[in-house]
């Protein structure tokens, strides 16, 4: 009985949710703190004194609140997502509605990205303000059972309440990218390395069918396409990290510093052991 043998068996959802909320706060404070520090330095150089400090604090607070409030919209825009039409993407809507019944969740707003690379993500501040994004490649290429597995994985991010930290990280950590590897560390802290495996496991708890998600992971592994529009500070959101794929080509050490995903092979092995 080793600790790593079963990362999910001893999970404590409420503990996990509290951890996520706490980490979100730390990220936002770091973001606001950095703006304040830069502002105060500028203030000292220019010599505006105490009035300048007050202005800096106000600006830092405003920008931090804006980073929090706009996070979902920024993630959607960054991925070039558009709302999924009810009749054009009937199967997508139907599958999500069914899974929401099983999970006891309100139906999130659905979006698509016109991209052949099969991928998806969930974002938002809470289960009531959540969005689900899938690429057209994912919707076209996977069969019903496989697609259901992936969508259940994304919905369990919503249910586990870990979309907040990952979404806020898009704007807050995105704004800290100038810090380089330190921002990467911050991303690891925000998202945690267990996020994906936990969502795989709790997604399967919704569908009660591990082979569906397993087959989807294998299909995605075999597909070499990478989503066209992604940013370093957004890789934590995607179902499969666009960063890891770049390793063969453009991937840099900085990309890897931001990558919070375990390798696909590891996730497949974990599902096969269930």
């Amino acid at each position: 009985m080793t600790e790593s043998a079963s990362p999910v068996a001893r999970r404590d959802f409420h503990g996990e949710i509290r951890r996520n909320q706490w980490h979100t706060l730390v990220i936002l404070l770091a973001f606001g703190g950095l703006i304040t520090v830069v502002g105060v330095i500028v203030d000292l150089l220019v010599g505006l004194g105490i009035l300048g400090v007050i202005v800096v604090l106000l600006i830092a607070a405003l920008v931090t609140v804006a980073a929090y409030a706009s996070a979902t919209a920024v993630a959607l825009a960054g991925a070039h997502a558009r709302p999924a039409d009810q009749s054009e993407f009937r199967r997508y809507h139907n599958l999500v509605e069914g899974l929401c019944i099983a999970a006891g969740l309100p139906k999130p707003d659905l979006y698509v990205v016109d991209d052949v690379a099969p991928n998806a993500f969930a974002a938002g501040r809470s289960p009531r303000h959540a969005v689900l994004v899938a690429t057209t490649g994912l919707l076209d290429e996977l069969n019903r059972v496989e697609l259901e597995g992936v969508l259940a994985h994304e919905l369990s991010h919503v249910k586990n309440d870990d979309i907040l930290a990952a979404t806020v990280a898009v704007t807050a950590v995105g704004g800290l990218v100038i810090l380089g590897p330190v921002a990467g560390e911050l991303m690891q802290f925000a998202v945690g390395s267990r996020r994906e495996v936990l969502a795989d496991a709790s997604g399967v708890l919704i569908t009660r069918y591990p082979p569906g998600l397993c087959a989807a992971l294998k299909k995605i592994q075999a597909n070499p396409a990478v989503v066209r529009h992604h940013r370093r500070a957004m890789s934590q959101l995607w179902f499969e990290s666009p960063q890891a794929r770049d390793d063969h080509g453009r991937g840099s050490w900085l990309d890897r510093a931001f990558d919070t995903h375990p390798p696909l092979a590891e996730r497949i092995r974990f599902l096969e052991s269930m």
Binding site: R90, R91, N94, L95, G98, L99, I101, G104, R144, E148
Partner: peptide, 24 residues
Amino acid sequence: LQLQEELTSTEDRIAYARQFYNDS
């Protein structure tokens, strides 16, 4: 084709609704 999709997903939903009932 549309009706087939609707009926298949309704069957799924019935199963999921029962699953959710049992979980509750």
